[in-house]
Design a protein around this nucleic acid. Structure first.
Length: 493
RNA sequence: GCCCCCAUCGUCUAGCGGCCCAGGACGCGGCCCUCUCAAGGCCAAAACAGGGGUUCGAGUCCCCUUGGGGGCACCA
């Protein structure tokens, strides 16, 4: 095993079939962390050998999501590197070459069985309660003859000649040795009849050629890991360190999230896709922090981490192999924490797209002004619009019922409002402190409670029940517009 | 069905044989503060799945049971 200070070469190898999922984001994050920490390299490799499953634009979105998270790579399909190409669809011949090398070594063979026959074999085996594996029909064909048939264009796949006896041991960093009886393993396919390599072959050849030292992947790969070990051994190569991460379970902890359940999540403003989280107003810092802590911990009390912190403190050894249920309320919590940690200019800048999406045209200066009064009262960035839209509207709606002070009549409210308006008009220094002083004094004179006077003014000035602190709002609104809105309110009571 | 993995509060977890009648965090409940909403402060409830071993001593090691999860494609 590698010592802690040798550079690790790791790879994140998604297939471009859709949005980036939280589980993928976590894997990529850990890859990135361990590469940075050891001054190694993080490789982004696109696994697109299945031409049927390609999704238009998925590769671009994938890179966008990763960059948004702040997880950048050293080598990849877009930036090259010494071991490219980094897109498997551009490496077809390489896999062909290695597959034939295995045939030559008698560790793989041509199989000419039709998919109909295969389906039949499988069905029969299942009926007899046997493993639904390949029956080995082509396993011992005459080699020269098989070679000839393949050359003549007969449709075929290439299968691995899995040992029938013995045990294959996979050493997982988190779980130790895992034993698999070879008799339970199948003669799995290496190369499809269309000539494209399957994951099992392609990933291993690439990991070898790209000098990957640590393979970090989801535990759904555990069942096929002996196959992978066997291929490494067949080539006579030294295996990388295997690290199988726990899977993410749905919030209830009962099973993986289904497509349907994942879609339903967005009704509550949550999602398991990175792209959606960005749209919903979550900070990449928060998503990183949150996801890092699902299956990993630093100690018994530290939980706020920046990417830089994680690079310094992350350790594969402290990974937890048990499955983890996704906890979105913790995401909310981390989002609040990271929002609070942002300075006003930074936070303000991040509000802009959310205001623009709602049709407001705002300036960075304006956003900077509202940032401090918002930073510890919003959960997601788009909450800023809900809370402060009234500051940027030309007209707001008032309802007479919500204006009238509780326990007082409309007429009493209007008289009080007229008094307050006079006070406001007479404020020459339009600062938060002065507004506070003057209005508080008026409140005392009239024997009103803060709730009575300020709820009225809040409604009058914003048309909303909930806003940031009233005097801050009035200050940002400006004296003229404040007066205007109070006047309008008095007219409709 | 077969193979594999996992097992501490509702959830994420600390715990690597005595420091634990189990600590932190989210969430939940209560109180304080308070112009709304938050934030903040304080307090509370809440867990070692069960059974066998090993040991002077087990949440920590081993075995079994149970429970949960993952995988059994010419997908990755």
């Amino acid at each position: 095993m590698m010592s802690q200070n040798t550079p690790y070469r790791v790879r994140f190898a998604p297939s471009p079939t859709g949005h980036v999922h939280l589980g993928s984001a976590r894997t990529a994050l850990y890859d990135y962390l361990i590469a940075k920490q050891t001054q190694g390299q993080f490789i982004l490799r696109i696994e697109d050998t299945d031409r049927k499953r390609l999704v238009e634009g998925a590769e671009e979105e994938l890179m966008k999501s990763m960059r948004w998270l702040g997880i950048d790579w050293d080598e990849g399909s877009d930036k090259g590197g010494p071991y490219g190409p980094y897109r498997q669809s551009e490496r077809k011949e390489i896999y062909q070459k290695y597959a034939h090398e295995l045939i030559k070594k008698d560790m793989a063979y041509y199989c000419f069985c039709s998919s109909e026959r295969l389906a039949q074999v499988r069905q029969e085996k299942q009926k007899n309660k046997l493993l639904p594996h390949y029956d080995g029909f082509c396993r011992n064909l005459d080699k020269a003859e098989a070679e000839e048939r393949a050359k003549n264009g007969e449709s075929h796949v290439i299968r691995f000649k899995t040992p029938k006896q013995g045990i294959t041991v996979v050493h997982d960093l988190l779980r130790g040795d895992i034993l698999f009886e070879n008799s339970n393993l199948d003669d799995f396919i290496l190369v499809k009849s269309d000539g494209w390599a399957l994951y099992h072959l392609a990933a291993i050849v690439d990991d070898y050629l790209m000098k990957v030292t640590h393979v970090i992947r989801g535990s759904e790969w555990l069942p096929t890991s002996p196959l992978h070990s066997l291929i490494w051994q067949a080539f006579g190569w030294e295996e990388p360190v295997w690290v199988h991460l726990s899977v993410f379970l749905k919030p209830s902890g009962k099973g993986k999230m289904s497509k349907r359940e994942a879609a339903d999540l967005s009704n509550d403003g949550y999602s398991i896709f990175v792209k959606d989280l960005e749209d919903f107003g979550y900070l990449p810092e928060a998503v990183i922090n949150w996801v890092a802590l699902m299956g990993w911990s630093y100690d018994d009390h530290t939980e706020f981490f920046t990417l830089e912190d994680l690079v310094e403190k992350f350790s594969l050894k402290k990974l937890n192999p048990s499955p983890a249920a996704i906890n979105f309320s913790k995401l909310d919590y981390f989002n609040k924490q990271h929002i609070k940690a942002l300075d006003d200019a930074d936070l303000g800048a991040r509000f802009i797209p959310f205001f623009e999406k709602e049709g407001f045209s705002v300036t960075l200066k304006e956003m900077e002004a509202i940032a401090p009064m918002l930073k510890d009262r919003i959960t997601t960035l788009d909450d800023s619009v809900d809370m402060c839209a009234f500051l940027f509207k030309d007209e707001i709606m008032h309802s007479p019922e919500s204006l009238v002070i509780k326990g007082k009549s409309s007429e009493e409210t209007r008289q009080l409002g007229i008094g307050a308006l006079e006070v406001i008009k007479n404020i020459s220094d339009w600062s938060i402190d002065t507004i506070d002083q003057e209005l508080t004094q008026y409140m005392n004179e009239q024997s009103l409670t803060p709730k009575e006077l300020f709820s009225f003014l809040r409604e009058a000035v914003s048309g909303q029940r909930v806003t940031p602190p009233l005097f801050d709002c009035m200050q940002v609104l400006g004296k003229e517009r404040t007066i205007q809105r109070v006047k309008e309110s008095l007219e409709i009571i």
